[in-house]
Write a protein that binds this DNA or RNA. Structure first.
Length: 553
RNA sequence: GCCCGCUUAGCUCAAUGGAUAGAGCGCUUGACUUCGGAUCAAGAGGUUGCGAGUUCGAGUCUUGCAGCGGGCACCA
């Protein structure tokens, strides 16, 4: 379906036809200069060395020999380049296919039902989400949508840390508030902790009378459940959903960390030192005294000298849970860049447990920093994700975050975000969608009995073909965004398509003969087909980034 | 100190090693008595942080330097 892939295949075949045995990457991509057509390839330059011929001759021969399926494009050799221009007839046919095919255009089977878990956000459920958390949530959710669209079998998971140090500290903090005490050192101080204490008094009858050791676990479970509900609601407002909320405690109930430790011990990956149990893939290194030495940056404590396991022990079990128990072929995790130092250890752990580390894919996204002086935790002002969504709206928030590649740091300026929320580029795209919808209604009113099928050969105006051309690009955008796991490519595409749509519409303002709705029912019908194709594709693309496609604004 | 990421127009950001580096915002100037002006058209604005290297070709790859962010726990 993706025309770029068809052209590339054809070009490779042509390369072989002129005597190339081992065809390198020919770098077929979009032409930047319109004079060069729609796609360009530097095939002649790439093949010159191997063939020992001048690039321009090679390009010329390729253009002569190449057979392009469906007459999708015409080749032209310029210098060492082979350029392609999408043909008018093919573009017209595409409009019809997209218009009648519904909203699935661009979907592909590159996933082949591969079973993948996408785990994202997974922050300790010990407080409300703040502005920075939104980025991981939106990135992970959009990635999952893309992977689903390309036929991967996706499960979205939130890993709930319900029994680690932070969780216990959370329980202790609620306990303290329940008894009117200040929270413990490095405990949780927010007002919501006191609210949780009050809630627990109402809902856990007699809780305040229980001794500490009995009360704290109950309070912890209660408070975490409440926070998980709150997190679920917060991300739900952003159109983010999960299939599974997987508690850390379940790992231990299933004996998975224990099993992982056993396996690592058998593999010689564990070492006792100073009363603690360490994981270290570099165990085979020896120092001069014959003592085994663990390379410092690779090693990690699994069981503390106190006998308590660390989060790393849970993570080992979590890997088994997913690869061994639940049989995911790959696991994609979205992490904030502040955890990047942990990547090598997790990869090493995957390998030590006997799995290909490639099966663990870690997507890092840079942090969202608050502009200094605007707000401060110490000053008691905490900008929550909920507050941002309240004031800007889900669509604008999602678009704002997704317009940035994961590896740029965002300097978040709340005031600026609020003052510019009406200028968010998301409205440009949504307006294009609403506009098309409206035009289609108008067409139906003026011509109540239009033909079932359109004569798309009537779509000959350059601004009409430009819309069709954008449609042609959509499958490759999906493919690239999926393969590179870069959802930000989608909103950039949406903007390009919306631009083509607005221009197409405006041609009718310049000259009434170019409107969609004209006296000629056949011409109206053909343009209506283009509107539908563009609208479906806009909607599909917006869906993939979790943004609504309104019919009126 | 060591490790990771970033540095592109005034600002926020795009750009598979390919031809003339693109958008949005802001700025200047234009465009509707008729399909929605949250729109469209035109213009100004660049030594891609600095230097070296690889290559027919570098914003993109390698390397040195500088600046910014993050990380280097028996925290997560």
């Amino acid at each position: 379906m993706a025309v770029r892939a068809d052209l590339e295949t054809a070009l490779r075949a042509a390369s072989k036809a002129i005597g190339v045995t081992d065809v390198p990457d020919l770098e077929l991509g979009r032409a930047k200069n319109p004079d060069h057509g729609d796609y360009a390839s530097s095939a002649g330059l790439k093949l010159a060395r191997g063939l020992r011929q001048p690039p321009n001759q090679i390009a010329a021969r390729l253009a002569e020999v190449i057979e392009i399926p469906d007459g999708a494009a015409t080749p032209q050799a310029i210098g060492g380049y082979v350029n392609f221009r999408l043909s008018e007839a093919w573009l017209q046919g595409l409009v019809e296919r997209v218009a009648t095919g519904g909203p699935g255009y661009g979907a592909s089977d590159i996933g082949r039902r591969e079973r993948i878990q996408v785990e994202f956000l997974s922050v300790n459920p010990t407080g409300p989400l703040h502005i920075g958390h939104g980025r991981g949530a939106i990135l992970g959710d959009s990635l999952a949508r893309l992977l689903e669209f390309t036929n991967h079998d996706i499960e979205r998971e939130y890993y709930v840390n319900d029994q680690n140090t932070q969780a216990r500290m959370f329980g202790e903090s609620v306990y303290a508030r329940l008894h009117g005490d200040p929270p413990p050192e490095r405990g949780y101080t927010g007002e919501y902790v006191s609210e949780l204490a009050e809630m627990s008094r109402r809902e856990l009858t007699g809780i305040e009378k229980l001794p500490h050791d009995e009360a704290e676990p109950k309070l912890r479970a209660f408070a975490i459940a409440a926070m998980v509900d709150r997190i679920r609601a917060s991300v739900g407002r952003l159109n983010v959903r999960y299939d599974e909320w997987f508690p850390e405690s379940q790992l231990w109930a299933e004996g998975l960390p224990q099993l992982a430790i056993e396996r690592l011990r058998e593999g010689g990956y564990l070492k006792e030192r100073e009363g603690a149990l360490w994981f270290g893939p570099a165990l085979e290194e020896e120092d001069g005294l014959g003592e085994q030495v663990i390379a410092e940056d690779e090693s990690r404590v699994v069981i503390r000298s106190t006998g308590e396991p660390t989060y790393f022990a849970s993570d080992l079990g979590y890997l088994l849970s997913r690869f061994e128990r639940r049989h995911f072929n790959r696991v994609v995790e979205v992490w904030g860049a502040d955890h990047h130092g942990y990547v090598p250890r997790m990869k090493a752990a995957v390998a030590a447990l006997g799995y290909d580390p490639e099966r663990l894919v870690i997507i890092l996204n840079q942090l969202v920093n608050l502009k200094e002086g605007k707000m401060s935790k110490r000053a008691g002002r905490f900008v929550t994700l909920d507050e941002l969504v309240d004031r800007v709206g889900s669509d604008a928030v999602r678009y704002f975050y997704l317009l940035r590649s994961p590896d740029t740091t965002i300097e978040f300026d709340l005031e600026l975000a609020l003052s510019q929320s009406n200028e968010n580029p998301v409205y440009y795209a949504q307006y294009a969608h609403a506009r098309l919808f409206n035009v289609e209604l108008t067409a139906a009113e003026k011509h109540p009995r239009l033909r079932e099928t359109a004569d798309v050969s009537l779509l000959t105006q350059p601004w009409e073909l430009d819309v069709a051309r954008q449609l042609a690009f959509w499958p490759e955008v999906v493919e690239d965004a999926t393969r590179l796991m870069e959802p930000h490519r989608v909103p950039y595409y949406v903007h390009d398509l919306a631009t083509a749509v607005h221009r197409f519409y405006h041609a009718g303002n310049e000259d009434g003969a170019h409107r969609v709705v004209v006296d000629d029912p056949l011409l109206t019908r053909a343009r209506l087909e283009l509107c539908r194709a563009a609208r479906h594709t806009l909607k599909t693309a917006l869906d993939l980034i979790g943004v609504t496609a309104p019919e009126r604004m």
